[in-house]
Amino acid sequence: MMTACGGGDAANAGPPGAPTLEKETSSSEAASSSGKAKLLTDADVTLGDIDNGMVEKGKTTYDVKCQACHSMGENRVVGPGWKGITTRRKPEWIMNMIVNTDAMLAEDPEAQRQLEQCLVRMPNQNLSMDEARQVLEFMRTL
């Protein structure tokens, strides 16, 4: 019953280009345009040797906020499995998917392609930059 990423009613998918809900803004304009978030670039994310402390924290966050939809293996639950994800995706792309989810789904062709398959919008789980970076570190071990 949990194959997901297939079937479903495409007409009911979340509205394309749905509002970018920026965390700190409260002006009425904030809710009215998508893709305004500034995406991270490769200069914003650097990888060093694997930091086990960060991996540990990343795993904790994963268990609470991601595990319901992403497996650590190759199989898809609601979203794609994470095995080998850091060999498939650039670190900044992964980070953007986590912290700028709505902008990515609105603009990034790869993210949009996945949405077309899964038909569930990846939720913005409102991770801080540090938490997202820890999850990325955890992904590197998969």
């Binding site: 019953m1 949990m2 194959t3 497996s71 293996g73 199989n75």
Partner: peptide
């Protein structure tokens, strides 16, 4: 339980 058809891992 929640059973996934392709619960590999």
């Amino acid at each position: 339980e929640t059973v996934s058809v392709d619960a590999g891992v």
